[in-house]
């Protein structure tokens, strides 16, 4: 095995040098072009989408609730797409455009008002009482 492997290697180096001496350009241009062309395009495509995914997370994280709402609208529009009539196509395009422009707003500094908080607590009490009573009724 070693006997085959290493002579082949040296043979290639010799071939490369001779080729260079004669043609003044490295052999295997097709491979280099293949790598520079399709392969790199593919790699960049993957990279682009990964970065887009990361950027999406950053975008969502500025205000998750608002971002989710915007995304929801976008998905809804996309679902509706097949049923769009030609007349409405322009309107649809505009809607889509608008949604793409929407950015989640930054959260205001004081977000919680007391009413919400109280409601939350009341809901918890109600839940608790409910579970208590159900528990008692169901108890043998």
């Amino acid at each position: 095995m070693i006997l085959i492997d290493e002579p082949l290697m040296f043979a290639f180096v010799a071939f490369w040098i001779i080729w260079m001496a004669i043609f003044k350009t490295p052999p295997g241009q097709w491979l280099i072009r293949l790598c520079e062309g399709p392969l790199m395009t593919f790699a960049r495509y993957i990279d682009f989408h990964v970065m887009k995914l990361a950027a999406f997370f950053v975008w969502v994280s500025t205000n998750p609730v608002a971002a989710m709402r915007i995304k929801g609208k976008e998905v809804k529009l996309k679902v509706e797409q097949p049923s769009i009539t030609p007349e409405k196509a322009a309107e649809y395009e505009r809607d889509l455009e608008e949604i793409h422009k929407m950015q989640p707003q930054r959260e205001p500094m004081v977000r919680l008002n007391i009413g919400t908080a109280l409601l939350l607590i009341l809901v918890f009490i109600a839940l608790y009482l409910l579970s208590m009573f159900i528990g008692r009724w169901l108890a043998p």
Partner: peptide
């Protein structure tokens, strides 16, 4: 429940950030 509010356990944490 009372202490969960005081120690800001997850759904009752709403007062804490402000």
């Amino acid at each position: 429940v009372g202490l969960s509010i005081k120690m800001a356990l997850f759904p009752l944490h709403v007062w804490l950030p402000d």
